[in-house]
Design a protein around this nucleic acid. Structure first.
Length: 655
RNA sequence: GCCGACGUAGCUCAAUCGGCAGAGCAACGGUCUUGUAAACCGUAGGUCAGGGGUUCGAUUCCCCUCGUCGGCUCCA
């Protein structure tokens, strides 16, 4: 370290000269509350870091993404300290910041109870109030091992540090190990310490708002072969307001939960008699599903798809040919033995579509051949992962397989991606990004050249759509790379929707061939593609996206007639008849509830249009609209009202 | 599959420290005939998820199974 009296640094783009021994915090005139750390030469560092000649120093604000990560990481430390004080036997795992919060893993005798979390949170508040300082200290590997002798998981991390596949973590980086000491601000006494790369807030007092959220089991280093630790999740924010906003968002998401809305709106249920992950759709959900499917069918027809149907069960040989039994047997329902053969419920449609392809000789003139099916598949999802409609054991995929030549592949993929995005937009999703999943270096079949070509083609096609493209290295299925379309919903959550996968492998395994113009036999390329993914899942996503308030074209009941009194029922009956003739799903509430109650019921059912009629409307040959917003429009001539409704349905707009 | 919590009427939720299970909404029957989010009265509804155990007695305590929820792992 140079003992220069003056050093030159670059601060906010401008050169400055400071005295030797100046810290980044001093140089930035940071208060430790709004500016909580510094970026020195692009690396996040503590404010207490001494700046050196030539350093480029920038502030990290607590309300920046990086700043919040530091805040959350420091909060994780406070939590770990509190946990170890209350549960002295608790051994430390890892404790990184994550999106919207942080967690820390602990090896404890007993899993945490909600009551334990309260105690930990209480102790954390005391630590925050006390204002313990975070002090960084470099240690040698040997010294760290000695200091952390009682922390077996930390020792393991130290051991990993130098390894060939050195993973970056918040505990250990590639180089020098550091330990952060939490010191009493008055006495300077050591309160707690943790192996950590940092940086940290200067003081625990700089944590403006935090809350412990939940606890649960988590495998050490993410592998189910390892022991299970207990993880506590928390959140922390730069202000109380920001935290309240976040908690509000969570509440809002909860209100949209499709499982809750599905029951409330009488759309679907999971009868326990059927078994976990098997849904039944009630009439109201059934209508929505039918409309979704009908519209999709129509669009596929227009786009040149052929419709096929295949059974739900097959002899095992098919999945031996396809290779699914090699890779996914664990995820399939166990076989049924009959007549000396083993039958499996189908987990994938593609092998059956391949059989259709090869049922006779194929000509290049037939390509691209696009086979489409609403194919129901069954997968044995592990009991802990089944989740509403988004993770089920029986589902219907809107599955298509496109067989084409290598020359056609690029254009076919381009138009396919455009088709997929257009259709998703019609269902009301319009904020997308694409994800390109590439070869898993371990789990793959086929040649590197094929993968290379397929991946590059997909990349090119994805880029041609000018949507944000995120890479997912190693995320592909064993038989080929894929593009997935991720959609952001009404409250900004992202859902994986459509997938488009290139496959050079299955055509090989099924020995698919077509005859080219020159008479030679050639192998087609296969494109797998599910647009909704599964209808069930897509249905669930739409419920959440619309918070149950479907646009008129999808709404199970589009119009409900509400008579002011019983005398007006038949008039509304006539209006309803006219609407029905125009294909509108309409009901008249002729129950003996009062009008106000009927409005309340229709409102709760999220019916897009309420048509009220009383003496005044009847005299004018009119009806009065009430919309979901509560807004009303009185005395609308019947024909005009019908036109408005039909128009909204036909244009598939939200109202 | 693993860790944890939970399961009371169709729904939301009470109560019973082991002693005949209770309310609102919904349903059904009646009265009322109404102008933009809940009229009034009444009736019915439960093997307290299922099975086993402990006990004079179990919805309550214990065990198993099923299911749900929150995590982890997995997701063709």
């Amino acid at each position: 370290m140079s003992a220069a009296l003056e050093i030159r640094i670059t601060l906010a783009g401008a050169e400055r000269v400071v005295a030797g021994g100046t810290t980044a915090g001093e140089a930035l005139a940071a208060d430790g509350r709004t500016v909580i750390a510094a970026k020195i030469n692009g690396e996040p560092r503590d404010l207490a870091t001494l700046v050196a000649d030539g350093d480029i120093v920038e502030p990290i604000a607590i309300d920046s993404e990086e700043g919040r990560a530091i805040l959350r990481h420091s909060t994780a430390h406070v939590m770990a300290q509190a946990v170890q004080e209350i549960f002295p036997g608790a051994r430390l795992g890892i404790g990184p910041p994550v999106e919207n919060g942080f967690y820390y893993d602990f090896d404890v005798e007993q899993p945490f109870t909600p009551d334990d979390l309260k105690r930990v949170e209480k102790r954390m508040r005391e630590i925050v109030k006390q204002g313990q300082t975070f002090a960084r200290r470099a240690v040698s590997d040997e010294a760290a091992r000695e200091e952390l002798a009682a922390e077996p998981y930390k020792l393991e991390l130290i051991g990993l540090k130098g390894g060939a596949d050195a993973e970056e973590s918040v505990e250990v980086g590639g180089g020098q190990l550091t330990i952060y000491d939490n010191l009493d601000p008055k006495s300077g006494e050591l309160c707690w310490k943790d192996l950590c790369r940092g940086p940290h807030l200067p003081s625990t007092r700089g944590i403006p708002a935090f809350k412990l959220m939940r606890s649960g089991g988590a495998y050490w280093r993410g592998s189910e072969k390892n022991p299970q630790l207990q993880r506590i999740y928390g959140t922390a924010w730069e202000s109380r307001d920001k935290q309240d906003e976040y908690l509000k968002r969570l509440e809002e998401a909860e209100k949209r939960d499709h499982r809750k809305l599905g029951a409330e709106l009488d759309l679907f249920s999971f009868p326990t008699e059927l078994g976990s992950g098997l849904a039944v759709f009630h009439p109201k959900g059934g209508v929505i599903r039918r409309i979704m499917e009908d519209y999709s069918r129509r669009r596929h027809e227009e786009a040149g798809y052929s419709f096929v149907n295949t059974p739900h069960i097959t002899k095992e040989n098919l999945y031996q040919i396809s290779g699914h039994l090699d890779w996914y047997a664990d995820g399939m329902f166990p076989p049924m033995e009959l007549e000396g053969a083993r039958y499996y419920l189908k987990p994938m449609n593609c092998p059956m579509h391949n059989l259709i392809f090869r049922s006779r000789g194929r000509s290049y003139r037939e390509l691209p051949l696009r086979l489409f099916e609403f194919g129901t598949v069954y997968r044995y999802e592990k009991s802990g992962v089944v989740h509403g409609l988004t993770r089920v054991r029986g589902m219907t995929q809107d599955d298509a397989h496109i067989y084409c030549t290598r020359d056609q592949m690029r254009d076919e993929l381009k138009s396919l991606l455009r088709f997929v995005l257009a259709l998703l937009r019609d269902y009301g999703l319009d904020d997308f990004y694409l994800e390109l999943s590439t070869k898993d270096p371990v789990k793959f079949v086929g040649t590197d050249e094929d993968w290379e070509e397929a991946t590059e083609t997909l990349r090119e096609v994805a880029e041609s759509e000018r949507l944000e493209l995120v890479l997912d290295p190693g995320g592909a299925a064993f038989y080929g790379p894929k593009i997935s379309v991720q959609a952001r919903d009404a409250i900004g959550r992202t859902w994986q929707m459509s997938t488009i996968q290139l496959d050079f492998n299955l055509p090989e395994r099924f020995e698919l061939e077509f005859q080219g113009a020159d008479g030679s036999r050639q192998r087609p390329v296969m494109i797998h593609r599910a647009l909704f993914g599964s209808i069930e899942r897509f249905f669930g996503v739409l419920v959440e996206h619309y918070a149950g308030a479907f646009p008129p074209w999808l709404a199970p009941v589009q119009v409900i007639g509400i008579p002011i009194s019983e005398a007006h029922v038949s008039y509304l009956g006539d209006v309803a008849k006219k609407l029905r003739e125009r294909g509108i799903r309409v009901e008249v509430d002729s129950s003996d509830d009062r009008m106000q109650k009927k409005i309340r019921n229709a409102q709760k059912a999220k019916v897009p249009f309420m048509l009220l009629a009383g003496d005044e409307d009847i005299a004018a040959g009119a009806v009065s609209f009430r919309y979901r917003s509560g807004e009303q429009k009185n005395g609308v001539p019947v024909e005009q009202a019908i036109a408005e409704i039909v128009d909204a349905v036909e244009r598939r707009v939200q109202v």
